[in-house]
Amino acid sequence: MIDTLSRLRLTGRAFLFVIAALFSLQSIALQPTPAQLEQFKGLPAAEQARLAKQFGVDIPNVNAAQTPVVAQTNSVMPVAQQQVAESVGGEINTNTEMEEGKLPAFGYDLFAGQPTTFAPITDVPVSSDYVLGPGDSLKVNLYGKESQFFELVVDQEGQVYIPDLGPMSLAGLDFSEAKEKIKKTIDQKMIGVKASVSMGSLRSIRVFVLGEARVPGSYVISSLSTMTNALVLSGGVSELGSLRNIQLKRKGKLVQSLDVYDLLLKGDTSVDAQLKSGDVVFIPAVGPQVAIKGQIKRPAYYELKGSGSVSDLLSYSGGMLASAYPQGATLERVNEQNEREFLNLDLSLNADINRTLKNG
Rank of each mutant, 00 (worst) to 15 (best):
Q295K: 07
G328Q: 07
E341L: 05
I59P: 02
F118C: 09
A322D: 15
S317T: 04
I292S: 06
G172N: 12
S6E: 09
G236Q: 01
G360F: 00
F282N: 04
V290Y: 02
V280R: 12
L138D: 00
Y108V: 08
E341D: 03
V84P: 00
I205Q: 10
M1Q: 04
V193I: 13
T4P: 00
G235V: 00
F118M: 14
M168L: 15
Y219A: 12
S24A: 10
S242W: 01
Q188I: 15
T228N: 08
E100G: 09
D352I: 00
D58G: 02
P34Y: 03
L10N: 02
L152Q: 03
V62D: 12
L22K: 14
L343N: 12
E239T: 15
D352W: 05
G158Y: 01
E86Y: 03
L265S: 06
E341A: 03
A46H: 06
N93V: 08
K251P: 07
L51F: 04
P104F: 01
L275H: 03
Y301T: 01
L5Y: 12
E339C: 01
K181Q: 02
Q26A: 01
Q337F: 00
Q295Y: 05
V79R: 06
S204A: 15
I121V: 14
S257K: 04
A300L: 07
Y325S: 05
